[in-house]
């Protein structure tokens, strides 16, 4: 059970919804956490996902979904406070620490997360994983960027095109 929140006037058990991954694993989470996904939010507001129904997510496998939900559960309380204007510095620091640790993951897991965050439209997570990719490539040369991201080496034709861009346009600023 998640740590109890001190939310006033919210007596009784939180509403739960069930999400079903592409490999048919069922995840039961609080509706508030799942609602960080813009894609799921409407379904949940309409009362979907409860009871034995569950919301199928054919594009997200169970490993990725459990990671996504770890993020949502952690961020749901702050999101419920409207971006947590009254959050303490300690709370914010804790979320930041969590975020940094959260994206400290294998690159293939990161790529799956990026896709899932995009499909589920989880804004904070989209931003977090995009920043991670930017951090991976910043300060690197074009060739280093390719290798870091796992691109194949350029073909001689591609290399020639890039050399031409470099000479024609110089910097990408006009």
């Amino acid at each position: 059970m998640a740590a109890p929140e001190s939310g006033d006037g919210n007596n009784g058990a939180a509403r739960m919804v069930t999400l079903i991954s592409s490999d048919n694993t069922r995840f039961e989470v609080e509706a508030a956490a799942a609602s960080l996904s813009q894609t799921l939010q409407l379904t949940i507001l309409d009362g979907g996902g409860g009871g034995g129904d569950g919301i199928p997510l054919p594009n997200v496998d169970s490993a990725t979904l459990s990671k996504v939900l770890e993020y949502c559960i952690k961020h749901a309380p702050a999101a419920a406070n409207g971006g947590a204007p009254n959050a303490t510095a300690v709370d914010r620091a804790e979320l930041e620490r969590f975020d940094n640790e959260f994206v400290n993951i294998d690159q293939s897991v990161l790529y799956s997360l990026i896709m899932a965050a995009h499909n589920l439209e989880i804004e904070g997570l989209q931003s977090l994983v995009a920043k991670k990719v930017a951090d991976m490539i910043k300060g690197k040369s074009p060739m280093e960027i390719r290798r870091t991201l796992g691109f194949p080496d350029p073909t001689p034709e591609e290399q020639a095109e890039m050399n031409a861009h470099m000479l024609e346009y110089g910097w990408a600023y006009e």
């Binding site: 040369s141 074009p142 960027i145 691109f151 350029p154 890039m162 990408a172 600023y173």
Partner: peptide
Amino acid sequence: SLPRASLVCN
């Protein structure tokens, strides 16, 4: 930043 990125691929 952007000039480098612009030379990664077409």
